[in-house]
Design a binder for these strands. Structure first.
Lengths: 249, 249
DNA sequence: CGCAGCCTTGACCATTATCAACGCTGGTGG
DNA sequence: CCACCAGCGTTGATAATGGTCAAGGCTGCG
């Protein structure tokens, strides 16, 4: 399992997580399902790391020795083709979890989009805990279930949606995922570059840039700054995202 | 969770599954992790169904009342956009499992590609069993982990690979998944139509047809019949699939 | 044998990629 | 404090991959 994002229901937990970077393992959103003694054991296992923007958290092919819980910042999970083509398979935020893997090596890379802090657990010890705590395993399965549904949505986006529809979907989904900013309605923080958005949506930077300009021209969004925008017409944007761009015209 | 394919390690289990369609729940590949009494309980819960080609097993939006274990045939899992665009997110075969879902309704559809037989379990009873059997939950998490890794691979395919690379990847992956045919090396059974392949790979039928013809012309494959082909040059096909098409030229 | 459905092939088109130039912006050092 | 520079973003012109439209062929079944 590559990465597990926190569940929508866990929104409070997520926010909490982002606020308690000092308390290490307790920041782990799954903690809600654990008893106090288990939490203490997790705490004891955890390393706290801070990594600068651009730094690598996980390298594709490396032995899978750790699992991670993100406590602040934004992480990109990605895969590369030998010639350098890149697919970003997800952006992770505070409260999200990553690193579980079926084999002994990671099959993906993870890098900091902005300065990131994480709790790092030895994989074997974490596995041990999982075996002993069905509640933990249950929570992870719950998350994995959710993550698989999200993956199907990303597949229809990549396989069947137009560039406009992809951007619209992205802009609507992103704020739900990022607890870093209080959810001012319509306000979207874009910690990632155009290039990262492009590699997430299966497009090029030029197309991303052009489509954002077009959405702006159509009055659907306003570009506040390079890394911040406003959704002006959520309804029409949603219709676009769902492939009903013409219904509302 | 939409669908869980059997693990590669479970190849023997899978084959067994496809051979014992008569024994119902015991065909469920996860059974390997359950004790005999649990198996008997599963057996008691299961309906055995046979559905004709083209029939619907799960409709998007329907209340999620069952989970399914496929005992023979091929199932397509898909999502639709309102205007009819279709993305097939996976093909399932004997031994695969589907239907777990985070919400109360299915968020995808499942339809028989060819005549299919399944074991159907009431979702609530299955959940109950999961709660009582950590081994079952563990097995499902294991599978989900694997399925998530596969989803990442499909994302790089859909987001970054060319039509040729997509077809090459598909032809190489498919036989590993389908236990219906003894794994004659290089022999690929294609139970699905060109249209289904296209909707799985994010292409059109015409492109699928043209690329298959091109692969044939290049001596990489031979089209034995409409639903059967031979891989003549696995190495070059693999190189193509991995985006190293030029390396071997 | 005939028909329906699927597949293939061809001609043309559109969306998006590629290539190129330029502009903005934020950080650094004079 | 300002000027410069590097990196990122935007915009434009052109190209290419794959989509669309159309016609015809195969195949398997009644």
């Amino acid at each position: 399992m590559l990465a597990l994002r926190s569940l929508p229901a866990g929104c409070a937990a997520r926010r909490e997580a982002s606020e308690c970077t000092a308390c290490g393992a307790r920041a782990f959103a799954v903690c809600r399902t654990l008893d106090a003694p288990d939490l203490d054991r997790l705490d004891a296992l955890a390393d706290r790391l801070t990594v600068p923007a651009g730094a690598s958290l996980i390298r594709d092919g490396d032995p899978a020795r750790h699992v991670f819980s993100i406590t602040s910042g934004c992480v990109r999970v990605l895969k590369l083709l030998p010639d350098g083509r890149r697919q970003i398979t997800g952006f992770l935020f505070a409260g999200d979890f990553m690193g579980l893997s079926s084999g002994d090596a990671y099959v993906f890379a993870a890098e900091a989009v902005e300065p990131v802090s994480v709790c790092r657990f030895p994989r074997t010890a974490f596995r041990e805990m999982m075996r002993e705590s069905p509640a933990l395993e249950h929570a992870l399965l719950e998350r994995a279930t959710h993550e698989l549904a999200a993956a199907q949505n990303q597949m229809i986006l990549l396989g069947r949606k137009t560039a406009q529809e992809r951007l619209a979907s992205f802009l609507l989904d992103l704020p739900d995922r990022d607890p870093a900013r209080p959810p001012v309605p319509g306000h979207v923080r874009l910690p990632m570059t155009r290039s990262e958005i492009a590699d997430y949506l299966g497009l090029t930077i030029e197309t991303v840039s052009r489509v954002l300009t077009k959405l702006k021209t159509q009055g659907l969004i306003r570009l506040v700054s390079m890394h911040e925008l406003l959704i002006l017409d959520p309804e029409r944007l949603r219709a676009l995202a769902d492939g009903m761009g013409d219904r509302l015209d």
